[in-house]
């Protein structure tokens, strides 16, 4: 068994007096979907921002395929094969699908002394990559703003996969989606995992996690309560851990187990 794709050990992150993370360890293996669960403010976003080079951890080590690394910028993490689809900043709605897809890595073609954006190649690849994920665009110069939330997530995922991500981090990709779009995104996660990419899937919906997860880590107020593999843990237990124990169990009793 080779080393995990990425391994974060005892990560701490302080924002001034706020301790957002207080010793969190997570590893991601090839072809697995690792679900990171936790309530609002638990520190999920902060944790994945450390993983993707946006924040530098106050303490702790990051290893990529066994070797210790420091990420000084998102670019460093990207070069190490770690791609992130952020909760709020996945796409620029005013720009076309192609422009978004290639943003930061535009293909170029020579025209005499000038280098031009190669729209022909860019459009072709965008259409075919999107089709592989099951989305058929009207036209590649359609603005992202005209896509549905699920389609936007899929563009971002397709982009990361196309550019050779080894680890794909998804920050609450399903939180704003309806039933059908959620199942589309979950199906996309499954496709990505089958390519051997390690997926980190952040959510606070236990059902979404149970649908695709191989391992589950629960964050609560900046700490982990351990990692469990699929089959070792039940949805209700995860739910309880997220809420930090008793209150929800009591509440659940009175609501008849519907949460």
């Amino acid at each position: 068994m080779s080393a995990p794709l990425i391994e974060l050990v005892d990560i701490e992150k302080h924002f001034g007096p706020v301790i957002a993370l207080n010793g969190v360890s997570v590893s991601v293996k090839e072809g697995e979907c690792h679900c990171l669960l936790g309530d609002n403010g638990a520190g999920k976003s902060t944790f994945i921002k450390t993983m993707s080079g946006v924040h530098k951890p106050t303490r702790g080590t990051i290893r990529v395929q066994g070797a210790e690394v420091t990420f000084n910028s998102p670019r460093d993490a990207m070069e190490a094969g770690i791609a992130t689809v952020y909760q709020d900043l996945a796409m620029i709605p005013l720009m076309s699908v192609t422009r978004n897809f290639w943003m930061g890595r535009e293909p170029e073609k020579r025209f005499g002394p000038f280098k031009m954006f190669d729209f022909h190649t860019a459009n072709k690849v965008t259409l075919s990559e999107m089709a592989k994920m099951g989305i058929h665009l009207r036209s590649p110069d359609q603005a992202v703003g005209t896509l549905s939330g699920g389609e936007r997530q899929t563009v971002a995922i397709a982009r990361a996969v196309y550019f050779g991500a080894k680890v794909l981090i998804l920050d609450e990709p399903t939180s704003a989606l309806g039933v059908r779009q959620t199942s589309n995104v979950l199906a996309t996660i499954d496709k990505v995992r089958k390519k051997g990419i390690g997926v980190v899937f952040i959510t606070h919906n236990v059902r979404h996690a149970m649908a695709v997860g191989d391992r589950f880590t629960v964050l609560n107020r900046g700490k982990t309560l351990g990692t469990a593999a699929r089959g070792e843990i039940k949805a209700e237990e995860l739910q309880d851990m997220m809420a930090g124990g008793q209150e929800l169990a009591a509440l659940e009793g009175s609501l008849g187990g519907t949460i």
């Binding site: 998102p74 992130t84 952020y86 900043l89 796409m91 620029i92 709605p93 005013l94 943003m103 930061g104």
Partner: peptide, 11 residues
């Protein structure tokens, strides 16, 4: 369009 999103992808 979105400076932060652009920075995240290395623009």
């Amino acid at each position: 369009g979105d400076a932060q999103a652009a920075r995240y992808v290395g623009v």
